[in-house]
Design a binder for these strands. Structure first.
Lengths: 234, 234
DNA sequence: AGATTATGCGTATGAGATACGCTAATTAGC
DNA sequence: GCTAATTAGCGTATCTCATACGCATAATCT
């Protein structure tokens, strides 16, 4: 995708939205406003409806004007992604790592629920931006503050973050199960997918408290696993 | 995206690749060959290089010919995704759920490493196809065979699957860390990202056995957490 | 052989990203 | 103030794609 997204996200440059001193026509647009409108479109209609033209229309300008503020579409998307994380998470400091990571996880979840298109972007090859760096740093701090080794802390964050990203997938898709199991209607289903079939036939799924929030269930399991490891280390 | 991807993946229809009986010009192309070539391009160059024209060229045919076999590009992509999972996993049956899920997880990992573009697709809103259903069924069987309740089994599979999907993200991106931490070079890094900075400064990261394979580290934690839960249930 | 039925695919259309270059609006220097 | 320098706004042209339409082609059926 974008050649040097890193520079884009971190450096100053000709395309920076920063207000300028000196000669030249003043800019009515700004990188911030462009990114904000693009995010608004994506939130409302999905990333596939974000086009340079659509974004420009919202800003009452021509499509080509945007290129004075962002190098191109790919870079705009990278900026959109990081823009969803400009607000750092709020974590309890004094209640131990588990409470802090639960808070962190729930805030990440909320973030991706607000911007479902962003989850797919997280799965790209992307340079980390200032926003994402802040979230990462906050999570690392939780474990480092606990006195854990650097490598264990990083691995723990990656484990929790990994779980979250993956667990949100089905959730942001067709809710939890509207027709995820539609394939069981197929004639050969009982034969080819006996376990899924048995599961659906069991019938206990509808009322299950666990399935009402699989995200939390899995999160607690992951944290249990980490807790066990951490306790063993001490 | 695709309107009724379900029918596409499961039903017979005018676009089915199946060989036909009766009058009419015989088809030189087939859905299978088209999907296979598309997957080959994506594996080699990324999903963004898969275009109807490119695929057609590889098959020595015109772009429009493909539309006799697949309804459109979105549907082709859905078929590509499910095609990566046509081979069901091979799991040990007699060594308990943990060994089976480790095998399952590693095979999922191998699958996404072979087709990195597929991971991003997993994050779409998509109907489950015959291939993916097979993998899901296999994993469900692991827990059901253990005598676990239906809802617990499903939640457990979702937890492991969630972890895998998320954990593979950084791995399929810029390897583990070539410049994930490049942002620490920034002037304000020590101030804004003190924990990440401390982590990098600690220096123990390079030689860490844990970080050499964060995927396995996290996987073991998730399984530990599940094990604890399962044991408590009995 | 002629009717029937599918497939192959050239051409046309329309959307989208973006290079180029001109115009407009400022400020800096005099 | 005037002029030069500098930068933003953006119309137009181009290129890449997906894909609708319709005709030619090549089988089978009677």
């Amino acid at each position: 995708m974008s050649g040097d997204a890193y520079a884009l996200l971190w450096e100053d440059g000709p395309h920076t939205g920063r207000t300028r001193r000196g000669p030249g026509r003043p800019s009515g647009l700004s990188r911030e406003r462009i990114v904000a409108e693009a995010v608004a479109i994506a939130d409302a209609e999905g990333l596939q409806h974000v086009s340079m033209k659509r974004v420009a229309e919202r800003l009452d300008s021509g499509a080509m004007s945007l290129y004075r503020h962002v190098p191109g579409k790919d870079e705009l998307v990278a900026l959109m992604y990081d823009a969803t994380m400009t607000e750092p998470p709020h974590l309890p400091e004094s209640e131990g790592w588990r409470a802090a990571m639960i808070a962190w996880s729930r805030q990440v979840r909320a973030l991706f629920r607000a911007h479902p298109w962003a989850l797919a972007l997280a799965t790209r090859n992307h340079a980390i931006g200032p926003g994402e760096a802040g979230w990462l740093d906050a999570a690392l701090g939780v474990f480092l503050r606990e006195g854990l080794a650097a490598d264990v802390s990083l691995a723990a964050v990656l484990a929790v973050n990994g779980y979250i990203g993956g667990a949100l997938r089905p959730e942001l898709q067709g809710q939890n199960d509207p027709q995820w199991f539609r394939f069981l209607e197929h004639d050969l289903a009982p034969l080819k997918y006996p376990n899924a079939f048995r599961l659906a036939s069991a019938g206990g799924l509808a009322g299950s408290a666990i399935l009402r929030d699989t995200f939390e269930f899995g999160l607690q399991r992951v944290l249990d696993g980490l807790e066990q490891y951490i306790d063993d280390q001490r």
